[in-house]
């Protein structure tokens, strides 16, 4: 991996920015260079939020990009907004309880019912960590242990167990997706 561009986008409350922070902190721990920029839709509530993350072996000059290598999207609105920016040969991970995908030629699309799975675990707030475990199983961005370290050091004790379970579940779902 010389450079990986991730675009994470979803509704406010979906934990998109937290997900970006966890990935960024992990990248730094893994001795990579990483930069994250954020954007919000101009709505006081109900809007989207976006985190663009670049992970690289070399210093990153310019933090902005248009075309991601992996797009993670958790709402229909943001899926519709961003799917056209994903180049051929690159990937989309979508939240399949909320997003009904359409055909995007040349783009690999994988759905994960992260929100309903998070509900089953006990709280919808860990949907983002389920996605993280899933994404890393499928794309092997970094060793799992790096992400788990960041989760252990940054999540409150009360919620730690839930988050670790969420990561594990995501990883298992990723495994299944790879098989199918």
């Amino acid at each position: 991996m010389s450079e990986l561009k991730l675009r994470l986008i979803g509704a406010g409350g979906h934990g998109i920015l937290t997900l970006g922070r966890v990935i960024g902190s992990a990248a730094i721990k893994y001795d990579k260079e990483c930069v994250m920029t954020v954007a919000y839709s101009p709505a006081q509530r109900g809007g989207w939020s976006r985190a663009d993350v670049i992970i690289s072996d070399d210093p990153i000059d310019y933090p902005i990009f248009v075309k991601p290598d992996i797009l993670v999207t958790t709402t229909q609105e943001t899926y519709d907004l961003e799917k056209g920016n994903v180049p051929k040969g690159k990937s989309i991970i979508y939240e399949s309880t909320l997003v009904k995908p359409v055909d995007v030629p040349g783009v690999k699309q994988i759905g994960i019912p992260a929100i309903s799975k998070a509900h089953e675990l006990g709280s919808s707030v860990v949907a983002n960590i389920i996605i993280l475990g899933f994404m890393n199983r499928v794309y092997q961005i970094m060793p799992d242990e790096i992400f788990l370290d960041v989760i252990r050091s940054s999540i409150k004790k009360k919620y730690l167990d839930l988050n670790l379970k969420a990561y594990e579940l995501g990883s298992k779902l990723g495994e299944e997706a790879l098989k199918s």
């Binding site: 970006g20 922070r21 730094i28 990483c34 930069v35 994250m36 920029t37 990153i60 933090p63």
Partner: peptide, 9 residues
């Protein structure tokens, strides 16, 4: 604004 809001090492 961009430097202020950007996250990096």
């Amino acid at each position: 604004q961009m430097i202020g809001h950007m996250r990096e090492k």
